[in-house]
Amino acid sequence: MTALAVLLLADSRLPNGGHAHSGGVETTVAAGFLSTVDDLELFLRGRLCTTAPVLAGFAAVACLLDDDADWRRWDRALSARIPSAALRTASRLQGGALLRTVAGMWPVPAGLRQLGRPHQPLVLGAATSAGGGSALDAAGLAVHHLLGGACSAAIRLLGLDPLAVAAVQAAVGGPGAEIARQAVLAAEIAVTSDDPSALAAVSAPLTELLAAEHAQQEVTLFAS
């Protein structure tokens, strides 16, 4: 059953609010930095060495934390890693959406629910734990959604060949899995030492800049 629960969390058919977010692809396309499948691959590889370790680390932590942990503190630690208010909002909107869904599927820690709209990786990690998955599952799911959301947005916005995009997503899967493994090691240290500073904190400058630009656009198809 565990495997099915994790697959359920990986499935974009699960109502998680993700379909309306492009993971920065829309604004990167609009600014002229991304237009081909090759660009998309570079974009994904860039995400893997910047945002991915952060999201995966927090998802893994949330999977390892006790129900009565200080969820607010971990949530703040992730906020501190996201300078752009627009990106924090996007993360909280998706966290709230996923929480709404998983709260009806499995028991979710009360401390997390009390946050209202926690950051998405925390909800993902807590849901993974509630569904019986491991910290590595949680970290992998975080990386998977980061890559998958970007790929699907690129297909919709640029008309890229979905088969070529699938091949690219598969190609970056190896490095993505390695990021997830590293994130779990960091998460174990962070949880054991009760200190979020052990978690990756990378933020990519272009991502933050373009997120701010996206938020001030009159006309956008994606919420972020």
Binding site: R76, A77, P196, A201, P205, T207
Partner: peptide
């Protein structure tokens, strides 16, 4: 904690100097 970010730049790495870097 107000801010805790790490900026990673690498002029020789196409991923880090690319569209998500």
């Amino acid at each position: 904690l107000l801010m805790d970010t790490e900026t990673v730049l690498d002029g020789a790495d196409p991923a880090l100097s690319g569209p998500a870097g």
